[in-house]
Design a protein around this nucleic acid. Sequence first.
DNA 1: CGGGGGGTTGATCTCCTTCAATCAACGTGG
DNA 2: CCACGTTGATTGAAGGAGATCAACCCCCCG
Lengths: 248, 248
Amino acid sequence: MLNERSITVSQDCAECPIRHRAVCARCESDELERLEEIKYYRKFEAGQTVIWSGDRMDFVGSVVSGIATLTQTMEDGRTQMVGLLLPSDFVGRPGRASAAYDVVATTDLVMCCFRKSPFEEMMRQTPHIAQRLLEMTLDELDAAREWMLVLGRKTAREKIASLLSIIARRDASINMRAASSTVTFDLPLTREAMADYLGLTLETVSRQVSALKKDGVIELEGKRHVTVPDMTRLLDEAGDDSDGGMFA
Amino acid sequence: MLNERSITVSQDCAECPIRHRAVCARCESDELERLEEIKYYRKFEAGQTVIWSGDRMDFVGSVVSGIATLTQTMEDGRTQMVGLLLPSDFVGRPGRASAAYDVVATTDLVMCCFRKSPFEEMMRQTPHIAQRLLEMTLDELDAAREWMLVLGRKTAREKIASLLSIIARRDASINMRAASSTVTFDLPLTREAMADYLGLTLETVSRQVSALKKDGVIELEGKRHVTVPDMTRLLDEAGDDSDGGMFA
DNA sequence: CGGGGGGTTGATCTCCTTCAATCAACGTGG
DNA sequence: CCACGTTGATTGAAGGAGATCAACCCCCCG
């Protein structure tokens, strides 16, 4: 832990680990130079709140490393996660003054932030940023719609299987691993966070995870380390159409 | 499959009722001229399918009048609506070859379609279109996230109240009516479509609509015509934070 | 008249929530 | 080093919200 923490984070775009996927992916070197002028890094510890819904938000930015969640909460405390932010994902909405959701770091988190108004100005001038942001937003919209099916129509067991599939898939994509039939990864979420994502209680999550384990769909080491011996089987449990659309 | 009785109607952008809200809202007159060259109108009757998920899609477009739905269906028939398309809403995704969802006309529908590759070419050349599309996509993403809270955490009664609130609100916005405390509108959806939107069964929808009526939250003339005597009361039933965010 | 689509209502069942006890891992202070 | 509190997780028992299955109504239309 301490070792990882002490790693110096590069502020140089040229060495940025998320350069090829983030909002700046399409930028030319002169555009990157302009971005460097308005950017700054921020670090958050696991559990810290990045911003509260309704708060004034004078920056937008990208997740460099770590994981954050976007959540909505009703007055009586019921909460629903509406987004899971992974490295390269974009945070904030250009043209909007205040945050629409709570953003919370679930692991230690590094963000590359841009001051909002210069960023908005750049969006107007250089189409590369707006183009990439449109692409990313359309992807997020697709993901949100996929999740609406999960929330509205799937059983608890299918919900868990769906979540595990998604994490496994993205893990494979980030680490450039081939989609082999057996997959291993660490759950970045607590049982409660999983429940908030899936519209369940944490007890139901716990029970269904245990059930999937008992049925041999997954194997567990500790609470968080998951092995999926047969990815097809998991996708089947998720109720997704066969292939699982291994899209980039 | 090919009995699609789409009728082409010529129409002038200058007189278009959705010009100020659609994807072309920001276009200058010369840009509109270019758009006119690649556009064509299509009409669909209530119940007709505009396109099936997975089908090749060689156009994108805007809803001019009428209402369409975006739905996802699992192999066993469970369906979830993931979008409700109203006049001025955009259909299709630039850069994607095939439809990701079923699009169905729930009322008689008129669409203004653009041939896909010329449209994509225009997006690259004229920033006004991409800018507006980004804005609209961000709005849709917000709406989708709002809906995730409804699907994941609200009770059946709250779900119905939420749907009615949304329809009432948008109706007020389209018809430029002041947000008076008493509102009247026609439900554009069958009970089954409401159920698909809300992740419920049609029986539960029916029961909860009746319950809201019995409790005086709404009044009904026939099955479809709804009167809301006190909008605040309805918003309260929906579990939304007080004001209901009367956004433009 | 018959039939079908849309809608309502009733009885029963079940999956998930709720409430509660227990456990393991971990850090902290006496 | 051990008692103690805390946090995350598991498991059990009981209850309820909504699903399921089924009957029936209304209205339009051929």
